[in-house]
Amino acid sequence: MSEDAPADADAPAAGRADVWIEKYRPERLADIKGHGDIVPRLERYVATDDLPHLMFAGPAGTGKTTAAQSISREIYGENWRDNFLELNASDERGIDVVRDRIKNFARASFGGHDYRIIFLDEADALTKDAQSALRRTMEQFSHNTRFILSCNYSSQIIDPIQSRCAVFRFTELEDAAIEAQVREIAETEGIEVTDDGVDAVVYAAAGDMRKAINALQAAAVMGETVDEETVFAITATARPEEVEAMVGRAIDGDFTAARAALEDLLTERGLAGGDVVDQLHRSAWALDLDERATVRLLERLGEVDYRITEGANERLQLEAMLASLALEHES
């Protein structure tokens, strides 16, 4: 992709007019980072021009939409948009959309290709009735239409539909895949990213490529070089070490210091209570606790999370959680 580098890459404002998640969305299956087990099989479908109905299951930002669009580009080339209908089930859910939009698209005449592709994003948002309607539609139009369904959990899709699809599981992207993409974009855009900056982006993204690229672009806007500090600031993320240090003090019984650290995160750094919970949840296994204490901490974090959503005071809830950690050492 480096050949796409704009000639004036050294002018920082250059690529900034585009949204990078769109600009750097891979156009070919081969360009997709990670998913070494899935991509070759999808390429095979394209190569043999023999596409079954597909179901992509996995969390956000793992490349489901990208894979669907890449398949479509490879099959239809330039005019892929004409042969690719993208519907978001959570926007247009209900039985009517299944019946009308899909049918109209599937029925519309088209030239040159044996079939068109309907990509139904967030298919698990469809009601059961709509899924039932969909299943027969899939079969009815299978002579000229292929469906690609995306969902978070395949188990939310009714069995008759699963039975009609080849199912692919998109797992969270590995850090290496995200790092490779981040470095590639940085090079193309001609922005300077420090190594700890890359690590910070990877950490903040937590397996979500979309988040990583957004973080990189936002951080790039902030200044000449993208370093750890900018990334953590832009993503409202604390350094994992800070979080761990805060908990460490609490475990050691120095509640005042732990509370001061929490105060800093919430006020100075602008983290929301939920952000702190999320990070603690990720860092829990790195703490100096035995595993039963860790499990208790996780459950307690859940309680904090739940109570905050219910309207409790996030600072007080987190403080209570920190205070309780001292008990782990005593017992």
Binding site: H281, E291, R292, T294, V295, L298, E299, L301, G302, D305
Partner: peptide, 13 residues
């Protein structure tokens, strides 16, 4: 995720 924590890590612990 808290359900998962409990039913995997909790059970193992």
């Amino acid at each position: 995720r808290y359900a998962s924590d409990n039913l995997t890590a909790g059970v193992a612990a």
